[in-house]
Amino acid sequence: MIKITTRRPASDLVERVAELSGQSIFACYQCGTCSSGCPFIEAMDLHPHMVLRHLMFGMEDVLTSKTIWVCASCFMCAERCPRDIDMARIMEALRQVNLRENVDHIKISHMTEAELEGVPQIALVAHFRKNTG
């Protein structure tokens, strides 16, 4: 049975994400345009519009979702959102909430020669900026 409550979520995650991203999370009306255009949807567990919905309820599962690390900030969603929400910034804020605890998402010192040799500098810099704090 679904319980409807007027209690506010205990977590301050929404406020933190709103502050870090500068976006109005509650402006979203769940049209799903962000998810329909996302080129990475296949690799995501939570679709972008679901990330926003979970966030509205203060659900912290968004912080452990694969989605936030799969997002490559291609800005397709941001460009198309009818509510002018920059979803790429929300994803970045969620990564930052994690990374600012001084826990990196990747282990740079464990990277192999095959991962490092021949790869363009722009790929490595971007990869580290998105996955380490």
Binding site: S109, M111, L116, E117, G118, Q121, L124, V125, F128
Partner: peptide, 15 residues
Amino acid sequence: LTDNVILRYYPEIAR
């Protein structure tokens, strides 16, 4: 001697 020779041993310079 490759373009990434230093990155290979000290990848953190890309940070």
